[in-house]
């Protein structure tokens, strides 16, 4: 297969970026999207042009480091699929593929398609944990948790922290990411005690880090590679008003 690409190039955070056009050929439909970019980069390097910087690591959809906007959609055309799990068989040759970084005021572009998502770590540092010291805890089976309850907490806990929710939101809100962590911990008995203070601190951290407000458009849920539901945002809001 061959493709026309339009890729955002920006050499550093202060530079003014622009789209550049490239074409790639001999692309196998079984190639992953990132392997297609690898192929382009090998060509660019050999030609003496700067390769495209993009984030990636595990390439199996779990580390959350990859993520670009493909044809206007975070992580590309498939539902519940991170960029690294996307394959070229999902694209038709006729259409140009436009590739941009995740855009949000709180995610400044570092280079080309790489953005700074450290604000997500800062939100977790404000309260995304259960305050138990390591190395000591009661016998695990003294805390009984129904399998359905665990599954519900797990749905929220499965967040990979990629930031697609922020990139998809017209307000660049980080509500889904934050709510997923609040929900994960508050749906478990171990996380109950700190529920209110955790929610308060994490919600305030979102604002402090420069993310926008949630206006319930639901765009984040559509793009989330883990399919995390916006019902967690409602749960977060309920807890916040209570706190």
């Amino acid at each position: 297969m061959k493709f026309e690409l339009k890729i955002w190039r920006q050499p550093n955070p202060d530079a003014k970026g622009a789209f550049q056009k490239y074409s790639v050929k001999d692309i196998s439909p079984d190639m992953s999207f990132l392997e297609m970019l690898d192929t382009l980069n090998e060509e660019l390097i050999l030609k003496g042009d700067p390769p495209v910087a993009f984030d990636h690591d595990c390439r199996e959809g779990i580390c959350g480091q990859c993520g670009v906007v493909i044809n206007g959609r975070a992580h590309g055309p498939l539902d519940q699929t991170s960029t690294c799990q996307l394959h070229m068989r999902s694209f038709s040759e006729e259409k140009t593929i436009t590739i941009e970084p995740f855009r949000a005021a709180a995610f400044p572009v570092k280079k080309d398609l790489k953005v700074d998502r450290s604000a997500l770590d800062s939100i977790i540092a404000e309260g995304g944990f259960i305050s138990v010291e390591t190395g000591q805890a009661p016998e695990a089976n003294t805390i009984l948790i129904g399998s359905e309850q665990v599954e519900e907490a797990f749905d929220a806990a499965s967040c990979i922290g990629c930031g697609a929710c922020v990139a998809s939101c017209k307000n660049a809100s980080v509500a889904l990411f934050t709510a997923a962590k609040i929900s994960h911990l508050s749906k478990l008995p171990q996380g109950q005690l700190e529920r209110n203070s955790r929610t308060k601190r994490m919600v305030q951290a979102m604002d402090k880090m420069g993310f926008g407000s949630c206006s319930n458009t639901g765009a984040c849920e559509v793009e989330c590679p883990q399919g995390i539901s916006i019902s967690h945002i409602a749960h977060m809001n309920k807890l916040y008003f209570r706190s």
């Binding site: 944990f129 805890a137 009661p138 805390i143 129904g146 665990v150 911990l185 171990q190």
Partner: peptide, 23 residues
């Protein structure tokens, strides 16, 4: 054995039986 205790305390959602015990 103790690691499981601690991970549960941290909120790791290990699989459970319907009875609520760890699987």
């Amino acid at each position: 054995a103790h690691l499981i205790d601690q991970a549960v305390a941290q909120g790791v959602p290990f699989a459970r039986e319907y009875s609520g015990y760890l699987a």
